[in-house]
Design a protein around this nucleic acid. Sequence first.
RNA 1: GCCGACAUAGCUCAGCCGGUAGAGCAGCGCUUUCGUAAAGCGCAGGUCGUCGGUUCAAGUCCGACUGUCGGCUCCA
Length: 651
Amino acid sequence: MLRAKLNHAFGRPFRSPLRGLVHAQGLSQLTPILRGAYFPRPNFEEPPMSESEATVEPPESANEFAGEYAPRELSPLETLRHSMAHLMASAVAQLYPGTRFGVGPHIEHGFFYDMAITEPVSVEDLPRIEEKMREIAKSNLKFERSFLDRDEALVWCEQTGQDFKAEIIAGIPQGKISFYKHGDFTDMCAGPHVNYSSKLKHFKLTAVSGAYWRGDDKNPQLTRIYGVGFESKEELEAHLKMLEEAARRDHRKLGRELELFSISQEFGGGLVLWLPNGAFIRKQIEDYWREEHLARGYQLLFSPHVAPYALWDRSGHNEHYADSMYSPIDVEGQLYRLKPMNCPFHIGAYKHRQRSYRELPMRFAELGTVYRFERSGTLHGLMRVRGFTQDDAHLFCTSESLEAELGGCLDIAQTMYRTFGFPEYKVELSVRDAKNTKKFMGSDEIWSLAESTLAKVLDDRGIPYTRMEGEAAFYGPKIDVKVVDAIGRVWQLTTIQLDFTQPDRFDLSYVGRDNTPHRPIMIHRALLGSLERFFGILIEHYAGDFPLWLAPEQARLIPISEKFVDYAREVEAAMRAAGLRVKLDDGDEKMGYRIRRAELEKVPYALVVGAKEAESRTVGVRRRHAGDLGAMALDAVIGRMKDEVERKAAL
RNA sequence: GCCGACAUAGCUCAGCCGGUAGAGCAGCGCUUUCGUAAAGCGCAGGUCGUCGGUUCAAGUCCGACUGUCGGCUCCA
């Protein structure tokens, strides 16, 4: 596979500009809830266990495990989860004799174990396995550790048919091999483990799936059973409740119910049809986005959806990115390809004529629609699609203005997080591997400058960040930002990346004060990622309850009976004139039913008018989540709503 | 693509051991004009994902295909 070759060539997965944030991440970033990969907010925080709760057996001597195969230091909670994985393995071993075991690590919120089980296992089998686990846990077996020499360990593998474990041994250069035994079950395992199985109480098996041995699709596929595990019942319950909450907020479900968007096979898998309600919200987001960019000196671009094959040669996409691109299209004998990124066009705009240092920095922004091939199995609602619109921008600047430009990117990003109600976020600074500079393109000078500038910009703003050594793209370092949503899940939105290759490839230049050509520095950035994915995140973040400024329908007018329809129309006209989006529901159902309908459609305001209101020129205001607020003067309601829109207030 | 599960009306779902398809909601019509989350009656709506097989008989059993969902990064 080409990507495999690229990985080899670059020593890391090939990541193209902006690739990382939008659709290229594993589903871990995209649907963290489903895999338990979201970060807990304080109420889900996992306090460390006290030492007495979980006993971690230290290695018997420092030399027992050599080099990188020394056992990891596991926290008490990680140890607990790791032991749960082994408890599960023992349960499976009892229920399905002959099962061969792969690996069973702790993961965020729980654990999994990859196993070659003697028969197919489905979710219906999980309760049975879980029951067996509890039974074993209750018998309070001791987890006993022992060691074998490599040869002995291999004999053990041979005798017990544990061929995967034998493979693991093959990868261990030296030292004794560690085993753990509880009851009749022995597993080759580095540990550490809790001391008694009775410590393992608060867990639940959640999913079963296939997973390739060692993550390689050329290897046999094992059955992976996932579980979640916590140290207290309360935490487990909170976690399960949160999973339920996530299901309630599922953007695919809400998207259908609220008529936001439609994705169907008939109109193309992975291709989004924005329905009127969703399209309106998108328009609001786009208007706001353009406004913020124009106010910050960006210039807007529109670029084509296809480009000649040769352009993708020059940009390097044909060489490095073909796996994600669609087949060429023949246009009168010349080949074109759908664009997977916008950068070549923005470069084209820069190259339109000779540039002077006086023009820099140039900031080109575009809501640019790109198309990328994604394997059918990876498509997921709005979160992973095949055609999407990036909120893209490319900034061209000198090294002197680099700091200010990067700062500007962070500022606009922070403004947007605030607007959309993401007060909490996490920042990662990905830099090159200082020990292995060869795999990163560009001079030491430019890298040092770039990395220190990125760090300085974060430091100056007092933004805490995690430094990711060696995680930079081969073409430049980057800042990634992940926001925390209403139920504590983490979503990557923003990426700000420096690119040292494209300006060279396209021979970009500007004439400096010294009257000689210079190479500009190029920044790629996307703040929201893609409109599709961001919309999916917003739907789940708001649980479908959009703030008033985004809501397609802001108020539903409900006359109590036919007699008050005329007054309702007056109210409707007044509100429309004030720029509010109102709909009149003069259906012949009872008022209670129409209120219910408005609630189910998540309309922010239901305005009830009857005899009282018509008399006093008021409306009965019912605010979603707040309930009946009583009668208010028509002007007061309009003022209140306009203010709410103005402030872009959250619901 | 691979592993597992699933596919019945627009939506949510029932349909047992194989005997010839059902509910609620939504839609449409009529009645009702009502004070803060479901008025009443009626009508219409389905080649049971597709193709093939077993059988007197298939929504139901078997196989293939298509699609959807959960995963396929976490390495003793």
